[in-house]
Amino acid sequence: MVELGKVDQIIEKYAGDKTSVLAILQDVQAAFNYLPREAMNRIGEKLEIPMTQVASLATFFHAFSLTPRGKNIVTVCMGTACHVRGAPRVLAEIERELAVKGGETTSDGEFTVETVNCVGACALGPLVIVNGNYHGNINTADVVEMLHEYKPATGEGAK
């Protein structure tokens, strides 16, 4: 169940300003970890903007996810600096380790693997961000250990 009260609070924060729709979507995404459909409908109604505008924005910006994401968000930077230093290999290793592809969530809902086109920490590449924590200069050999930190303490984890 999506708590629409939370959505209303966010809309309230922007005083129902139509032009703040992008910021509202960002805050909703931060609150729910994705953009629930009900929340988007609510935003459309409250701001009195057509759903076409909401949908167009939500699908245009890559920061938005329309499906629920995992507990841990693993973001692999694919910026140029990271790329030339081996980011594709790091991504491949993470995908192998978690048995998902970029953009997907593990079946146990623990991890979502995403890519981003540069986070502006280019000197640290290849760079992986897990739940907002920066892991710089990662090579394929470090991946298992890095992910291990975030796996649930009990059980086999995400694999």
């Binding site: 140029t80 600096a81 086109n117 540069c118 502006g120 920490a121």
Partner: peptide
């Protein structure tokens, strides 16, 4: 909106 991958001076 520094979108160039590999550039981070504005940040």
């Amino acid at each position: 909106d520094e979108g160039d991958p590999g550039a981070f001076m504005d940040r």
